Simulated assay, not measured.
Amino acid sequence: MNIRSAIVAFTAAAALAGCDFRSSDRSAAPPARPEVGVVTLHPRNVAISSELPGRVVASLVAEVRPQVGGIIQKRLFREGGEVAEGAPLYQIDPAPYRAAHDSAVAALRKAEATAPSAQAKVDRYQGLIKKNAVSAQDLEEAVAALAQARADVATAQANVASAKINLDYTTIKAPIGGRADKSSLTQGALVTAGQADTLTTIRTLDPIYVDLARSSAAMLDLRRAIDEGRVELPGRAVEVRLKLENGWVYPITGRLEFTEAKVSQTTGTVTLRATFPNPSHLLLPGMYVRAIVEEGVAPGGFLVPQRAVARNVKGEATALALGEDDKIEERVLTIGKAVGNNWLVTAGLGDGDRVVVEGLQLVRAGQQARGVEVVIDDASGELREREPTTAKIKAKG
């Protein structure tokens, strides 16, 4: 009896234990759906721009050289300072050129003195020939003498003008306005007309040019996008913004002037020129910059945060979207240019789609999840919750 009672007690205890296990299994709650941050997409017109390398170029450059020879008496400008167009820069010894001018003026007066006498002789002979008082040959010789006198006057006038030009050239003036470089010669130096060495260089810095380089392949892609209607040209002048070498953005917007009609055979690039106001002379020739050029507008485009886009094993761009039944779907995307911290998506997503931007490591395709609307800062690409009081999204890993 004792053995049988023990067996019965053991069997009853086992049955009760099995009942408790099954009861506990049935009462276990289903696992909670993971919470992910989503952004709802809507089509909009997206401004398309490109960032191109460039160099700053002076809008006008003049290399100053003497046009007459002589000894430099004075330098009349401040090195590195601003000079106005026509301002005197150097003074060359004018004495020999003033003497040449005075001599030319005297020769002109001499020629002008003989012209009236020759004219009077012609007038007199024309009256006498009617009376047969002089021969026709005498009249012809008088007319020829008058023509010679007039030619002598014209020659003397030209000599005076030439001498005056050379005398004026002894004062070397600024051909353009701008900033002058240092002087290569000092007072007392001998210069010659048209010498190879420049005296100084003047550069106009306001406005100033920026020459940009763009690949011919990118130009063809843009042309194709315009032809297919994916990009619309702006109806105004193309605006250009600059990033300087230190990362600072130049505060004044410029405009695109022209695109060269040739491709460099060595670099395969096309040169574009932009003009910028430069009142403070912050931009200097030779400075390296990067220009943001507006190319057009992509109508009805979708901007997807870059943090939401990944690559699959095929190398395709993909994103996770939350469907109507709260199931995660993997979408294969066709992406275009980067716009800030977003990708411009041209296919794979539609109006109202909810793209997962936070908690991507918590879910996979086909799994149900609970979406929380969030906002992505376009400038930094960082996530900001639309309602700070909602539960925070916890990303593991």
Rank of each mutant, 00 (worst) to 15 (best):
A120Q: 11
V238W: 00
S135V: 07
K392W: 09
I165T: 12
L303K: 00
L344S: 02
A144H: 12
G286I: 05
I335L: 07
R33A: 14
R224G: 10
G348V: 02
D152C: 04
I202V: 04
I71N: 14
A47V: 00
F21G: 12
Q361F: 11
A14V: 11
S59I: 04
K164A: 15
P285T: 08
G37P: 03
R364C: 06
S183P: 05
L212Y: 04
A310S: 15
Y169C: 08
V68K: 08
I172E: 01
P251A: 03
T266W: 02
Q157H: 12
R223Q: 14
N312A: 08
A32L: 08
S117D: 11
F21A: 15
F21L: 15
P116K: 14
D211S: 06
H42S: 14
H281N: 12
V357H: 11
Q265H: 11
K337L: 11
P277C: 03
G350L: 08
C19D: 14
D93K: 01
T198I: 12
P251C: 02
G194N: 11
T200M: 09
I165W: 15
P305F: 12
S117N: 12
A100R: 03
R364S: 10
G397V: 11
D123V: 07
T318H: 08
V57Y: 02
V249K: 13
D326K: 04
A145Q: 05
M1W: 09
A47T: 00
A163H: 09
E140D: 15
W343Y: 15
K262G: 12
L212W: 02
V153D: 01
T389Q: 13
G286P: 05
Y288C: 04
R33P: 02
A180K: 07
V293W: 02
Y97F: 13
G80K: 01
V56L: 08
P234Q: 08
A15G: 11
S117Y: 10
P234R: 09
R230Y: 07
E63Y: 06
G18S: 15
I376P: 00
A161L: 05
A149M: 06
I165Q: 14
V289N: 05
D93C: 04
N45H: 06
T318E: 10
K262W: 14
K262H: 14
Y250V: 07
A12T: 08
V39E: 00
E85G: 11
G254R: 08
G247D: 01
A133H: 01
V36M: 08
P31L: 09
E373Y: 09
P234D: 03
T389L: 13
D168N: 13
F258I: 10
A47R: 00
